[in-house]
Each structure stands twice: as C-alpha cells, then as structure tokens.
Amino acid sequence: MMFIAAYRIAWKDMMGDFRRRATLSSMLFFAVAVLVIFQAAFDPDRAEARRLLPGLLWVTILFTSLVGLGRVFQAEEEDGAFEGLLLAPAPRGVIFLGKWLGNLVLTLIVEAGLLPLAFILFNVEAWDAFFPLLGILVLGTLGLTALGVLLAVMTQAARSRETLLALLLLPLVAPLLIAGVQAASALLQGGEIGDWLRLMVIFDIVYLALAPWAFGWLVEE
C-alpha cells in the first residue's frame, strides 16, 4: 500500500518532467557536453580511452546528477506545493522514497543513453561488457541519488544552494566514485571486482536506510 504512494509521487514527477522535457533533456545534453569537453581536453587514443573510460563515465554521471538534483524540488517550489506534498497521507520516509525514485529513473535514463554514446565517441570496442558495465552504473546510482536527493532537501532553504550541494555531495560520494571506477576498470582491463561491488552495495544500503530517516527529521516541525 505504502509503496503505491511512493510510486505515485515518482510518477507525478516524471510525467511532469516528460511533459515539459525540462530536467531530462538538460541532463542529457549536459552529459554530451561533458563528453565533448573530455575529448577536447585529453584527446585520448584507443588504449588511453579504454583506460580512462570508467573515470570519464563516473565523473560525467556525477556532474550530470548535480544538474538533476538542483531541480528535484523545483516543481514544488514554483507552486509552493512542498507543504502540500508533506500533507500527503503517507509516512515521511515514503514521500522521500517517491522523490528518490523519480530522480533515480531520470538518472538511469541518462546513463542508458550516455554509455553507448561514450563507447561510440571514444572508439571503445567493449560492447560485450555493455550490460555488466551498465549494471555497475545502476548499482552506484542507487546510493548516489539517495544521498543526492537528501542533500537537495537539506540545501533547499539555503543561499547559493547549488554550490553548496556540490561542495557537500562530492566529498561524501568519494567512496562510491572510487569503488565504481575500480569496478568498471576491473571489468574492462581485468582484475579483482568483488570487493568493489561489495563496497558499492554497502554504500547503497547505508544511504537507502539513512536517507528516509533523515528526511523525516528534516521536515519535522
């Protein structure tokens, strides 16, 4: 029952966004812009591109998710509907899960587009590793968006909040970034992958357990 409420909030956000094509398209084009900038900055040959790809993917995802996170509560703010959202007949944790789900789906769509695009633009012939690589990205995105949406709530009432969001998110996701890059590198170049996957799972569990609880404290009056 309760998860239907979460699902409805996520659905409302996604449909609203698809209709205006606002967040999703800006995230997608931002991701493409980052890829172009990388190519211009490093101009890697094929071997280098294969080595740099994991880091490139994760840095792009991190910056792109900052674009999306800055707008998580945009719809509510424009209509002044944040209080209305909190009045929804569901526990606060479920409201958080709904918001998180909406952001998660948007980020996953961007990743599904980003990964083949990065393969093509950087001439990386690793199509047989496509789905395992996408799996690693999904695994990391669970924790990344959980922490990100929570920080977006926290910085909502702050001045210069987008800068603050980046300042807080980047150090806190450092473990996820390390584990994600190492896991993807192990996949592309061989090496031990299990430990890094485990680290990502731990990160996901910790933040998916902590974030709904913290959200409850944040919006309590």
Binding site: M154, P171, D195, I202, V206, L210, A214
Partner: peptide, 19 residues
Amino acid sequence: ILVIIGAVDLPIIHFSVQW
C-alpha cells in the same frame, strides 16, 4: 543531520581510500 551523515560516511571513506 549533515554531521551524522558525515559520521556514517567517514569510515566508508577511510576503508575505500585504504583499499
């Protein structure tokens, strides 16, 4: 709340960087 998030994150950061 941010401090508590950081307190949870710091051990994870420490071990990930160590590995």
